[in-house]
Computed example of a mutant assay.
Amino acid sequence: MTTPPTQLIRIGVMGTHSTGKSLLMRRIEMELRGRDIPVQRTGHLGRRAALVPLPKMQHHTVDSTRWVLATCIADEVAAAARLDDAPVRVVLADRACWDALAYFRAALQWRGESVPRTDREALHRLACAPDPYDLLFATVLDTGLPVQPKHDYDDRYRKLVDHHTHALLHEENIPYVRVTSHHASQELAIEHALQLCGTEALV
């Protein structure tokens, strides 16, 4: 007797730091659990990255970006595996794979540097390795919102990440949903996710 294939729905989010990515994923997770839809959410990448002696933020290198990409992919695979017995599996990727490339491009521009084409292509292949997301959100930076003092962010780098996030998605022709800081935009994003998972759940 063979086990019937299960549906796997992958929803990702990307965008510059402190723009509500994790909050959006947590709210979607809570709504899905409230509807008894099996879901796993990846996350805490920043906390784990702090334990790895690699450059961060505007100092990102090829190696640090490779680590972030590989970790994101591994986290999503593990999250899906935890739901193997469920008829519908939803994985919420708090930091989609493409996010790492946007941060890397922004770091290079911030430093005024470049890397060999072979390195750029290798990172691009790694970002392309997983199947496309069924739904991808990209947050939009609102410079009018204050950032907590404990976050010692470089303002220019934060803006560069926002720019490269949306530029990269346009270059790659990847469908995505822009999510602004406005309440209505965030509620619409959550509704997008619920509709996708609700539709898939009926298959």
Rank of each mutant, 00 (worst) to 15 (best):
M1N: 12
I9W: 00
I9Q: 06
M14T: 08
G15H: 01
G15T: 11
T16P: 03
H17G: 09
K21H: 05
L24Q: 09
I28N: 00
E29F: 02
E31G: 00
E31H: 09
E31F: 03
L32P: 01
I37V: 15
P38R: 07
V39R: 00
Q40C: 10
R41T: 11
R41Q: 14
L45N: 04
A49E: 12
P53Q: 07
P53I: 11
P55D: 10
Q58S: 11
D63R: 14
S64Q: 07
I73A: 05
D75Y: 13
E76N: 08
A78I: 07
A80R: 06
D85L: 12
A86V: 02
V88N: 04
R89P: 00
D94W: 04
A96C: 05
Y103E: 01
F104P: 02
A106K: 00
A106R: 02
E113A: 14
E113T: 13
V115Y: 05
P116I: 03
P116E: 07
T118S: 15
A122Y: 04
H124S: 10
R125T: 11
P130D: 09
P130K: 08
P132R: 07
Y133T: 03
L136K: 11
L141A: 06
T143N: 09
G144S: 13
G144A: 08
G144P: 04
Q148T: 10
D154N: 14
D155M: 11
R156C: 10
Y157A: 00
Y157N: 00
R158M: 06
H163G: 00
H166L: 08
L168W: 07
L169R: 06
L169C: 07
P175R: 05
S181N: 12
H182N: 12
H183E: 15
H183F: 14
A184F: 11
Q186R: 15
Q186Y: 09
I190T: 10
A193L: 04
L194E: 02
L194V: 08
Q195W: 09
A201T: 03
A201M: 10
L202H: 11
